[in-house]
Design a protein around this nucleic acid. Structure first.
Length: 129
RNA sequence: GAAGUCGGCCGGACAGUCGCUGUGCGCGAAGCGCAUGGAGGAAAGUCCGGGCUCCACAGGGCAGGGUGCCAGGUAACGCCUGGGGGGCGCGAGCCCACGGAAAGUGCCACAGAAAACAUACCGCCGAUGGCCCGUCACCGGCGGGCACAGGUAAGGGUGAAAAGGUGCGGUAAGAGCGCACCGCGCGGGUGGCAACAUGCCGCGGCACGGUAAACCCCACCCGGAGCAAGACCAAAUAGGGGAGCAAUGGCGUGGCCCGCGCUGCUCCCGGGUAGGUCGCUGGAGGUGCACGGUGACGUGCAUCCUAGAGGAAUGACUGUCCUCGACAGAACCCGGCUUACAGGCUGGCUUCCCCU
């Protein structure tokens, strides 16, 4: 099948690959490169680690129901995990938009794949402050 | 078999691959391997009640809030069980904020004459009194008329509601005015722990409209905040307190001394931010049996351990099958209530139909 993650034998998604503290989120929110489509906005900022890290932001504005928000977060994490090897080591914050609540799993997965490819293609810019 | 009614239960299944995470064990240990566990009946709304934690607190009262037929169950409740009363249904069964309106206050729209110590629009009567007419020779009597005083609440009409109902008597017409039956109220007796009931006895012609999710009265209950509660460990930076050391200094103020202020190094102490650890899941716990109880529930014995994350795990993909899958995601923990829910399984009871 056309699952890139499967063909590479899959990757783990350890705690190292997550943004865990408010300060880390703040760092990304301040001056990051932006990517996005109708389902997501992705903020990216170079980090000092050897691994890309992911943070999620799915607000209640996206959907009032916790089940829907959980689904979106799981899909993003799953996609990120599959592409971890190919993604440059930067900190990302994926912000979901309201249309994502109505999209199917397949639609969201494909949309994310396109974004990772764009990010892979674009060079990391130093955002001086 | 059909319709209905009251409960109980389930909430796609199986396999593979790749992940996340708790626990146990092992190892060449910031990890890895193996084994094993990982959302719900509502996890939801946050509407009640508790546990737990911190703060406050002698006792009592006021204010405020809540509950509201009775009895029981419970840690507690606004929950549950049983009972009483009222209403609905042929029935099983369902529904009810269901204490007090002979403490006080308020309100009762529209309509209607009148909405509460009753009143009198139409109507009825007009016995009694008044006026007029007739009759007898007069007083007076008798007869008739008027509807003036007055008497009525039977009938009409209004309204959610109009001061018991029906019948007979009675009357000028009427009226519990009188009587019978029904209804109502009060007192007593009887039954019941009680709410309450009453084919019992006596009394009262009947006097009591509704509204307390209106104020209010009565009885009972309630301190506040919440796991971001709270406890512990604790960098960096700034600052506080104490001790010691060197010089007996240095700088500022001042003409100078004293004095006052600032200043070095080392160690200790207390508070405490970032961050971390605990709180964090074994509990008013589940299951089975026995016993007590109409029941809710309680007691005893045996047995089981069944999520514990934290930017927040419990998922993704693929395949097969079916009746193609609803509402929906734990966040300290329990007991309830309420609301949402594709489809399916199952038990009791009721009514009707058919067969034997």
């Amino acid at each position: 099948m056309g699952q890139p993650g499967d063909s590479e034998g899959g990757r783990g998604y350890p705690r190292r690959a997550r943004l865990t503290r408010p300060a880390q989120f703040q760092r990304v929110f301040r001056g990051a490169q932006r990517y996005g489509d109708r389902y997501f906005t992705i903020l990216a900022k170079p980090n000092d680690e050897t691994l890309a890290r992911l943070g999620l932001a799915v607000s209640k504005k996206v959907s009032g129901r916790a089940v829907v928000r959980n689904r979106i977060k799981r899909l993003v994490r799953e996609s990120f995990r599959h592409h971890l090897a190919a993604i440059p080591s930067r900190d990302f914050v994926v912000i979901a938009k309201p249309p994502a609540a109505k999209a199917s799993n397949r639609e969201l997965t494909q949309a994310l794949e396109r974004q990772w490819q764009r990010i892979q293609a674009s060079p990391a810019q130093r955002c001086e402050r």
